[in-house]
Design a protein around this nucleic acid. Sequence first.
RNA 1: CAGGCAGGCUACCUUAUCGCCCCGAUAGCUUUCGGGGAGGAAAGUCCGGACACCAUAGUGCGGCAUAGCGGGUAACACCCGUCAUUUAUUCCAGUUUUUAUUGGAGUAGAACGGACAAGUGCAACAGAAAGCAAGUACAGUUCGGCUGUAGUGAAAUCAGGUAAACUCUAUGCGGUGAAACGCCAUGUAAACCAGUGUCCCGAUACCUAUUGGGAGAGGGUAGCACGCCCGAGCUGGAGGGUAGGCGGUUCGAGUUUUUGAGCAAUCAAAAAUCUAGAUAAAUGAUAAGGACCCGCCAUUGGCGGUUACAAAAUCCGGCUUAUGGCCUGCCAUAAAA
Length: 132
Amino acid sequence: MDKTARLKKFAFPKKEKLKSKKLIEQLFAEGKSITVFPLKLIYLPIVFDDDVQFKTMVVAPKKNFKSAVKRNRVKRLLREAYRLNKPYIFNNIEGNFALAILYIGKEMPDYHLVELKTKGLLEQFVKKYNHE
RNA sequence: CAGGCAGGCUACCUUAUCGCCCCGAUAGCUUUCGGGGAGGAAAGUCCGGACACCAUAGUGCGGCAUAGCGGGUAACACCCGUCAUUUAUUCCAGUUUUUAUUGGAGUAGAACGGACAAGUGCAACAGAAAGCAAGUACAGUUCGGCUGUAGUGAAAUCAGGUAAACUCUAUGCGGUGAAACGCCAUGUAAACCAGUGUCCCGAUACCUAUUGGGAGAGGGUAGCACGCCCGAGCUGGAGGGUAGGCGGUUCGAGUUUUUGAGCAAUCAAAAAUCUAGAUAAAUGAUAAGGACCCGCCAUUGGCGGUUACAAAAUCCGGCUUAUGGCCUGCCAUAAAA
């Protein structure tokens, strides 16, 4: 494995972010969920126009984190944990999915907790996918 | 050594590894290289503007705001100066046994600042009474509860007080906000059903259009009325589409420095400079080390924590609130030596 390929697999460019209002509404209306407290994953199989396997968004509810600074912090931690662990699902799942990762806890977490829980969440997702 | 008031500055750094957004070059379908990437309050959305649309924003009523005087400004409810009032404090002089108190001057602030000679209202305690109804004692008397004195009170029938009471006066203010606004993409979409309206005259043209005048359902003008504008459609039902992209959008009352004017706010000139533009929303995460500060032990030092408040969303000028650290000036001096 050369250097460029190794760097590329942890990237999280704009194309892999879920941004369309329509798709987000569809995801929340029809998607299934897995919870590994304090995280919750909502997923829905969708085929994208631009040939991307996954599109992902992260959510930190305003209800639990009133300050914009704290919401930003939580979202950045979630995004970072997803970015560093996404090769696991890329390597184990064939289909195309829209994903949303929600933080449903009320306390400010540290990164190590978020990473641990994200790994657990993705393992559950892969297990469930292979079972179906 | 702790305190009070006023003002100013600042808002951790380095390295490594992964990553995000924008711009430029390169390359040609996503590589490579270079550059840039939150704040003093970006916040609250409380005032004032720019800008856009509604009529180049008009008239009356209503409504709102401001309130000594002068200045600054694009503008303001902001800022600066000043006057009166007022608070604290010092000094001088007077009264007094003292506590105190009066006058003058200085220093530092600061809340308040049009009108009670138009009308309406309100006023604790005391008082008969703080107006519409009464009336104590004594005296006078033109015998009219007419006048005076006493008594209560800050004030007693009167040009008392109160407008952070209504109100009046002067001045200012049109409305909606970037989800404004313009363009493109998408749709049997100028389609279907029901109700209602689709009028009149003249000219050109010659059977359907153009143009001038009148009438005109309905609509716009975001409190109401007028006025103005659009006007051949409008309202409801059923059914369907989009919910994306581009512009607006970051070069502007811009920033920094110097000089000059001014008590100051601020203004003028010159030189240099370009400094975030995201849109389910970038500006980060982790690790190690080091400053700064805080807490505890305690005073070489050790241990622990590690920055506070808080993140652009069209852009500026203010105000208010939150908050870590440093510095300056003034005031006041307890306790100990």
